[in-house]
C-alpha cells in the first residue's frame, strides 16, 4: 500500500492496521524519516516538500512491486508526506512485514534507499537566510545503485 498525503501519520495505528489479522508475518520493520534541525550548517526553520501528483504514486507503487518481487513479504506500506513540515516532524514511513526478519529489514532499506532517488519529491529548506532548494545527494544515487540487480549490499 502507498499513500501520499499532507497530514501527519500515527505510526502505531499504521502498524496495527497493516498487520491486523495477519498471523504469517513474524517480523515487522519500520523506518521513519524525520525533518532534521540542521541544514548545511544553518538552523532549519521548516522544510517544504513539493511532489508530482500522479507520478509519485506510480513510482512508489512500482518500488513496492519490485520489493515484493525480490523478497517474500506479507505486507508493505509506504507513506510520504508533502507540504510544509517543521523540524522533528515525520516525512516518510516505510513498514515491511515478512515471515522472517531478514526480508523485512532488507526490503525496508531497499524501499527507503530507492525512494530517495526515484520518487519525484523536492525539498526546499527554510533557514534565517531564506529558502533554498536542496540539491540531490551523490551518496543517495550510490545507495540506489547498490540495489541494482546483481548487487548484494544496499547503501553505504
Amino acid at each position: 500500500m502507498i499513500r501520499v498525503q499532507r497530514e501527519a501519520f500515527d505510526v502505531g495505528a499504521e502498524i496495527a492496521s497493516l498487520c491486523a489479522g495477519d498471523t504469517a508475518a513474524g517480523g515487522v520493520c519500520v523506518f521513519i524519516g524525520r525533518v532534521r534541525e540542521f541544514a548545511h550548517g544553518a538552523a532549519l526553520q521548516a522544510m517544504t516538500l513539493e511532489h508530482y501528483p500522479g507520478m509519485t504514486e506510480r513510482q512508489l507503487q512500482a518500488l513496492e512491486a519490485e520489493a515484493q518481487r525480490r523478497w517474500l513479504l506479507e505486507k508493505t506500506l509506504i507513506i510520504h508526506r508533502y507540504g510544509r513540515l517543521l523540524p522533528g516532524e515525520a516525512i516518510v514511513l516505510v513498514i515491511t512485514a515478512a515471515a522472517h526478519r531478514e526480508a523485512a529489514f532488507d526490503a525496508c532499506r531497499f524501499l527507503i534507499d530507492c525512494l530517495k532517488t526515484t520518487a519525484p519529491f523536492w525539498k526546499a529548506e527554510e533557514t534565517a537566510a531564506g529558502s533554498r532548494w536542496v540539491d540531490a545527494c551523490a551518496a543517495d544515487d550510490a545507495a540506489t545503485l547498490g540495489w541494482q540487480d546483481g548487487a548484494v549490499e544496499g547503501g553505504s
Partner: peptide, 12 residues
C-alpha cells in the same frame, strides 16, 4: 512531459 531537478525525497 515533465522537467524537474534531481529528486530529493525520503529521509535525511
Amino acid at each position: 512531459v515533465a522537467f524537474f531537478p534531481p529528486v530529493t525525497g525520503g529521509a535525511p
